[in-house]
Design a protein around this nucleic acid. Structure first.
Length: 299
DNA sequence: ATCCATACCTGGTTGC
DNA sequence: TGCAACCAGGTATGGA
């Protein structure tokens, strides 16, 4: 269940191993993993021969800047002096959805049951996209089209949680008169980008707010606390290299550590770590929400 | 405009 | 034991 911290962990790993090498080609084993272009041959032709200058993250989306190949020495000098940044030829976009994994492997590693796309790098290396539930997607975006035109989900994203735009005033205004539960709002990527079911539940616990509480009923002091807890829970998880449950893996296939210290997520029926009261699970927005009825009093 | 239910998937778990 | 129903959930979509 990759959310912002897991995607950020993957991004950091990709920036360590995939940059400044010429993409030699690839193989698409499941066509509908390629969201754009429609023709998978065009996808492979688009990325082939490019190098990745840098991986970026927006919400739960990843995208790599693709540039024309550079002489290795020149490229190092250029990036150090920051004087000559090549114009991107396009972008390679990725969204892991629920079960997608980007793994740095060897081409000689046997294909796995859920291998969907393979991208070949020099020296027999491979960036492999595995995805059990097949919701994950990859995009090739030619420079002349523009990222948001092709990866249309980017258009609807709200502010990044760590940005100045995600301030108390923004949230207070956004919640004014809104009659939906706060849990639903936190999952809405147009309110804030990158929060998913796990960290929404964790942030609400740390803020002592029930998931069902209507946005309009929140006091400014609660909203300020919630904003801060959203930020700190995401930062804590990035520091732990992401959550440890479910299908999430970093690019070396390693699990994160956050789950070991989850307060409420996935702990229904177990005692609250603070007060011992049984953690309750309810259904909101078609998702399960976990909370402590004692620590998160009803409004 | 606001909000929500549903669809998309597969594999693991639960219930009969 | 076998099989069906349910559950996990990020995002697009259509409807209320």
């Amino acid at each position: 269940v990759p959310e912002l911290p897991e995607v950020e962990t993957v991004r950091l790993g990709l920036n360590q191993v995939t940059l400044h090498q010429t993409l030699e080609g690839g193989q698409v084993l499941l066509d509908r993993t390629i969201a754009h272009p429609l023709d998978v041959g065009a996808f492979l032709a688009g990325i082939q021969g490019c190098q990745i200058a840098q991986w970026h993250r927006r919400g739960k989306y990843l995208y790599a800047e693709l540039v024309a190949p550079q002489d290795a020495g020149t490229s190092r000098r250029a990036s150090r002096s920051n004087s000559r940044i090549p114009a991107p030829r396009g972008y390679l976009g990725a969204h892991l959805r629920m079960t997608g994994q980007l793994l740095w492997m060897h081409q000689s590693d046997p294909l796995q049951k859920h291998t969907r796309v393979r991208l070949f790098f020099p020296a027999g290396r491979e960036l492999r996209f595995n995805d059990q539930r097949t919701f994950g997607q990859l995009w090739w975006v030619p420079a002349e089209l523009g990222l948001e035109q092709v990866m249309t989900g980017l258009q609807k994203l709200g502010p990044e949680p760590f940005s100045a735009e995600f301030c108390d005033r923004y949230l207070i205004d956004a919640f004014k008169g809104r009659q939906r539960p706060i849990k639903n709002a936190l999952l809405d990527q147009s309110l804030v980008a990158g929060v998913g079911n796990i960290y929404a539940d964790e942030a609400l616990f740390l803020s002592q707010i029930r998931p069902e509480t209507l946005c309009a009923k929140l006091k400014p002091s609660q909203i300020k606390t919630l904003r801060q807890q959203v930020i700190s829970v995401l930062q804590a998880s990035i520091a732990a290299r992401g959550t440890s449950f479910s299908d999430y893996r970093d690019i070396s296939g390693t699990n994160g550590n956050y789950g070991a210290i989850a307060w409420v997520y996935g702990r229904d029926g177990q005692p609250c770590r603070v007060c011992g009261t049984e953690i309750i699970r309810v259904k909101l927005a078609g998702r399960s929400a976990h909370f402590c009825p004692q620590c998160q009093p009803s409004a």
